[in-house]
């Protein structure tokens, strides 16, 4: 499960485009969201995030 901590996220939105499956998106509530149907837990977003706001939990 990809989790985004919006308390840490600075909303650079870079993770949205780095995701190879287009699973990440900007939600109506102004938070970065993950579509778990699409997410393959590859960790590219985790590596890219400049503030370590994203983690992948089992």
């Amino acid at each position: 499960m990809t989790a985004i901590d919006m308390k840490i996220c600075i909303k650079c939105t870079g993770c949205i485009d780095i995701c190879p499956e287009s699973a990440l998106f900007l939600g109506e509530d102004a938070a970065i969201k993950c579509d778990y149907e699409k997410c393959i837990s590859c960790g590219d977003c985790v590596d890219y995030c400049p503030v370590n706001a994203i983690s992948i939990n089992d």
């Binding site: 909303k11 650079c12 939105t13 780095i18 900007l26 939600g27 109506e28 102004a30």
Partner: peptide
């Protein structure tokens, strides 16, 4: 390096969907 081109000449949704901001 990023998933998009433009460096800092980019326009994106940065607040809520539908609002495009020059980052």
């Amino acid at each position: 390096r990023a998933g998009f081109i433009g460096g800092e000449a980019i326009t994106r949704e940065l607040t809520v969907p539908g609002f495009k901001h020059d980052r």
